[in-house]
Structure formats: C-alpha cells, structure tokens
Design a protein around this nucleic acid. Structure first.
Lengths: 223, 223, 223, 223
DNA sequence: GATGAATGAGGATTCATTCAT
DNA sequence: AATGAATGAATCCTCATTCAT
C-alpha cells in the first residue's frame, strides 16, 4: 500500500480484473450475454467462480465493464471520423485504421452483433450510451459533407447502417466464413484483402457516387 | 362437423406442429439455439413442455425443423438468382423479391446470424446443407457473368459476402435499429425505403461498376 | 366373435397379450421393475405405449402378470421336489430338470433376484404368494427326510437358501459371468458343466454329508 | 471452538462428502444405479440436490466413489486369502473375517449384485477394475493348492462363483429373507448362525472333498 | 483477494398414464 | 384393439449468486 499507488477502483487495482475482462470479452462475444457462463469465464482465468464477485458485483456488471473497456476506444475512433475531409485519400486511410483496430480485438464486433440480435435491456443501454450518440454525430457529418450529396437525405441513415453491417458483419461472421469459405478470415492475407475490398466499396458508394450523380438517377428520384 | 375432423384440443386454427414451429422460430431467432428454452416455446403455444416431445424428438430436431421449413424457400429463391440476365431491371426486380420474402419471415435472418456468430456443430451443418452449395453456385454465376468483370476474381467472394451482410444485417439488426433509429424497421415505409436503397447499392456495386471498368481500373485515381 | 371362442379374459384372448408379456419379462428381468419402462416394452412389441393399457391396466398389473405366468410352472416344479425319495439318483435327475427348466427361461431368475434386492411391496406380495408357501413346504420335506439328518434343524433353512442362491445366482449373474469369465454362461457347454457341477454340490452337501456325519463333527456340535 | 475449526453448516459429525457417500451407498444398494436418484440421496443428507455436485461431478462419479470406498477394503481382504494355508482352522477363521467385514457394510453386497444383474458399462468397469483381477488370482491360488485336488480343473471357476453366490446371496437377499423367513438376517444371532453354516459348507466343499478324493472319484457311486 | 460449500431457479428430457378418435 | 396428443411429476444437471472462512 505504501509503495504502489493503486487507483481507488477495483477494476484498475489488479491485473486479475484485467484478466477477467479479457476472458469475459471472449466468452460474451462467443456465446452472447445469456449464453456465456460465469463458471466458464472463471475457468478461463483459473479462478473460482466466487472470486469473480470480488472484482465485479455480478454478471451484468462484468458485461458492462467489458463493453465499456472494449467499445470506448472503438467509438472514439469512429467519432473522430467526423473530422475527415472526405477526400479519397483520407477515407482510404480511415477505413484502414478502423479495420485494423477492429482486427486487433475481433471479439468486440461479435459482441455488438449479439446485442443487436438479442434486443432487451442491455441493447437499450448500449444504444443510449454508445450507438445513438455516435450515429447521430456520424449522420450530421455525412449531412454537412458535400461528398455524399448524391444520396437522398433519408438514405443517409441506411448508408450508415450499411457500413455498420459491412464492417461488423465481416468480423461477426468469422465462424461462418471459416465454414463456408474454408479460410481463416483473421489471417493477415484475408484481412489485407478485405481491407482493400472495403476501401473499394467505400469509394464506389461514397466517392464515385458523387461523380455518377448526374447520369441515370431515374430510380430513386421518382419516389 | 362432418368436414372438420379435428380434435377438440386444437382450438387454434393451425395444426399443433406448425404452431410449435412458429413459436420455436421466434424464440430461436431471438435468443439463439442455446438461449431459447423448450419451456418458453411450449408456453408460447400454451402447451406442457413434455408435449413438444410428441411432435419433435428434441430441441435439436425442433431447431433443424425450423431451419428446414424456413430456409428452404429462401434459399431456393436465392438459388434461382442464378438465371438472372444481370440487366439492371432484372436485378432490381430480384432484389425486390428477395427483400419482400425475407420481410415476410423476418426471424430467419436473425436465426442465421445467430448461427454465424455461435459457430459449432449447428453452423457446420447449416453450412454444409445450405450455405456452401448456395454460395458456391452464386459465385459461379458471378464468375460466368460479364457484368462483374470490374471486380478482381478474388474479390467476388467478398462482394458476395457483402451482400449477405447487407441483406441479413438489415433484418438481423432490427432490434438495434429500433433502438438507434427509433423507427420500426419492419414497417411498410421502412421496408420500401430499404428496398429502394438496396437496389441502388446493387446498381452501384454491380451494374455501374461494369461501366466504370474501363476508366481507372482498381485504384481511386478518379478523385 | 362368432367363429373364435375367445376366452373372457383379455390376457388369453390375443397373441398380442402374450407378446407383451414376453417383452415385459425380458425388460423387467434386465432392469427391474422400476428400471423397465412401458415405452421400451411397447417398442419391443412394436406397439404404441398407450396400447399396452388395452391389455393390462398398468405397469404394476403387467408386472404381476409376468410373475404369475413365469413363476407358476417353476414353483410347481420345485414344489414337486417334495415327493422325491432323496436317493442320489433322484436328486441328480431333479437337479437336472430344474436347471433345464430355468435355462429355458433364464430371465425369471434375474427377475426374482431383482425383487429380492429391491424389497418393497412387490417383494412382499411375491413372498406371500409364492416364496413363503414354497419354502415352508420344501423345509417340511427336508425335515421329514432322513437324508439331511446331518444338518442341525436350524441350519436347514440356511441350506435351502444356499441352494436358492446357488441356482438363481448362476442365472442372475449371467451378465457378470460374461464379463468376468469371458464366456457365455447360457451356452450348451456351460450349462452342461454347471449342471454337472450342481449335482456334485448337491451330493456333497446333502448325500455325502449324511455319510460324514459321524466323523469330525466338532465344529457345530459344540454350539 | 479452538480445536474444532468446522463450519457451522456441518452440524453432523462426519464431513459432508462422507455423509453423501453413506447415503449414496444405501440408495444405490437398494435401487441400483439407474433406480437411485440424486434427489433422494440429497434428501437423505438433508442437502439441496445441487450441493451434491460440489462434492462429486455427477451421478456416475458418485457411484464410482461409493464402489471405490466400499469395495477396496473388501477386495483387499479377499485378495489376502491367497496366503491361506488351507488348513481347516485357517479357512474357518478367514471365512469368519470375511463375513464379519461384509456384515459391517451389508449394502455393498447388494450393490455388486445389482451390477451383476444390470450388465452395462458400470459392470464392465467393475469387472475390469475389481472382479477379474480378484477372481483370476483366487483361481490361481485354488489351482496351486493341493487342497482342492478333488475338483476337476474346469470346475474350479464354478466353485469360486458358488462361493460368490453363497456369500453375496445371503447379504443381497436380505430383504427377501426378511419377508420369507420373518427374521432379520443382520441380527447378531442370524449372522452367527450363517457364519457357522458357511464354515461348515466350506469344510464340506473344500476340506472334506479332499479327504473323499480317494474314494469314489467324481461319481455318486457312494449310494 | 480467494475459496469450498450451499442454494433456488431453471435447463432438457423421460415416464406412466389418460383420453378422444 | 390401436394410436396421437396431452400432461404432471420426476429425472440429472447447470446457473448465478451468497456466505463463512
């Protein structure tokens, strides 16, 4: 106590808490909140289940701590996209950064998708604390930007969600990709390819769309 | 009385097995295989849990029956896309049909996404029986088509998966959309808008890409 | 109804009842009353479990019918031993007959042993209806006989039970013998050997004992 | 308080695991593995059924622990018989010791007989771990001994099994004996009588048989 | 901070039995 | 005489949580 200036909060005091969070993140991502078990999480940290309660008051609190720790930096990063100048080069770079960050902690994407599927109180909280603020600001940036003028105003949320689905989908569906494509989607090679591909999609949907704007806009313009 | 030889037990219109499948589909979609409980499913049909076993030999079999009943028509529909002529009009129409069909049974998408997340034996089976045949044939069609010549050959699987993520994502994330966008994503209005949007995306990624093909092949030099 | 003079009782009316009894005997012998299941018995006869109740009012009644049908002839046979003249030749022959009869229906022995182990109401009934009358008469015969005069009077019940254990034990322990001796105890060869052996034991314990009587009876005589 | 660091929970004297084993032994002996229920065992120890799983990972493991604890000393004892000198006095004493030991834990015999009846995986294990080693060594001892020269070589296993049936039968059939003989077979008196009787049988079948050996070898020509 | 033991609620499944057809 | 469907009670076992040590 004399030599080590521990923080006041239990979460930061010991590496044990961190190890618990790591294990919990893994299990929650794999099995969802309901599917993950305190027993398994404890076993992953080679701890008695009862010991988890010395660090977190319960399963729900542990879950929230995982979300907090994992999502904050991701969302901060996304939020920073606001300041982009929407030049193709910037978009490329920012797409790249985001994918790399997600690739570092691939469990988080699955975690969010689990929540999105399940609905319920956890999702409500996640939406309130993280998703809604993020999306509303991203939307605002979209709207201010001249870049996306090709899209109708009421299509911008859909475009935003599409990027959400595309990005999270890739990570979340990793187990499926392994089955269907018979390749490890987290391999350096696969990530590289996906990153290139995503940049291309971004260009086609955001950058080039602007260029095409004047041509054959007969489809949605009629609505 | 002469024409309806149904027992007095089944007051509801549909045969019991069908009603069980309906309830099971709902619960499996909401909570995943592990998260859904036979007890809850039975309660939804106002049946004793033991009665489920008169219709299906177990949870796993019930799950598979749900998949079979729900996915067969969808996948048959997707498979039929093979015969498309890739004209913008055909693509528009087929995109439309697919989305409408999925909208009729919005739980299925969530069910697949649950599987994709969870991995495990169920996914392996789903991949073997449904996904892999479908994707390999879709890919073949992609490849034969002159339409998508703009994409590198090794990008076609990614493009395919992107459509997977985009389409399933919309339905699967419905609970999240409700929270974040504060709108019912299954409303006629929202569906209409999403359908229009998806057609536009398809056009931008598949049809127009072809047109752009000759221009600045593979780089973002257009900016 | 006109052509077939069916007996009034359901048990005798159809071969189905008989087939049910056969299957029930097998299952009760293998797993005991509690361990055997109506479902399995029905499956053995390729019948719906509900159909059993058209022939027997319940599990308990079916069990009793099995006992009745199976044990009566055996016990009649044993009872007939009363009239033996206790000559070595007669004993040999009667031992032989008994073992052959039991070998024909090896399940019965296991059935009795199951009851003997379990105790409870079924055993009480079995004892009242079958075992007690039989043993008391067998004992009386023993006592009248000059043959067994070597044994103290209070040892005769134990001698009787010993034969019970020896005979039933061989059949009841068949699964164990298979494991331990690695041989099929129901094979003709094994049965032959066992029969010869049992006759030898009977001779040693009953016939020869008489002869030895005068020699070194220091052990029990002192009690 | 200083010398007894036990928690307040365990008011009863023995440690909980031991009390569970006691109760389990009783129930498994009475109803067999399949027939005994964790619920009942827990109730016997006044414990929540879930608590059993804090001490044993499952029903099967509990069963094996019961076997291990109960059978090891018995089988060690039997194994020690190997060193007997086959003198009448030694046999008397050893028979006595064995019966006394079994009488101390009369449930074990029923437990083994249950297994012998049921067959299945448990029996296979019991045979492999306990019975087969024991019997093969006992047989070897029999064979080396000059004592049993009267018996044919292929009769020795049967003789061995006969002792098995006689000894276990007495204990296993206790419920039946109570019904049929209307006496408690575990009473001191009954045990004393049975012990005397068993010694006599052993003498007649093993010791005296040797003496008779020269007389009328193998036939019942004595009549 | 860690743990062994205890527990109530709930998990899937089996069982004997009933009843209308 | 046979059956499909229904059911309440019981089966083994898991879960998150608590508590004394």
């Amino acid at each position: 106590m004399a030599t080590e200036p521990k923080s006041r909060h239990a979460e930061a005091s010991a590496p044990t808490s961190e190890r618990i969070l790591d294990a919990a993140e893994l299990h929650f991502a794999a099995d969802g909140f309901a599917g993950a078990s305190m027993r398994d999480i404890a076993a992953s940290v080679e701890l008695n289940p009862a010991s988890l309660y010395n660090h977190f008051p319960g399963k729900q609190a542990l879950y929230e701590a995982v979300l907090e720790r994992g999502l904050r930096p991701i969302f901060l990063l996304l939020d920073a996209l606001r300041t982009t100048d929407w030049s193709p080069e910037s978009l490329d770079e920012e797409t790249n950064t985001l994918l790399e960050r997600l690739a570092q902690r691939p469990h988080l994407a699955r975690l969010i998708v689990h929540e999105a599927l399940a609905g319920g109180e956890n999702l409500r909280q996640l939406a309130r604390d993280w998703l809604r603020p993020l999306y509303s600001r991203a939307l605002a940036t979209f709207r201010e930007s001249a870049t996306t003028r090709e899209w109708e105003d009421d299509e911008l949320p859909l475009l935003l969600m599409s990027f959400h689905h595309l990005v999270l989908g890739y990570f979340a569906a990793a187990p499926m990709l392994r089955e269907v494509m018979e390749e490890d989607p987290y391999s350096h090679e696969a990530m590289e390819r996906q990153s290139r591909f995503m940049r291309k999609i971004v260009r086609l949907l955001v950058v080039e769309a602007r260029t095409d704007a004047g041509r054959d806009e007969g489809t949605h313009g009629g609505g």
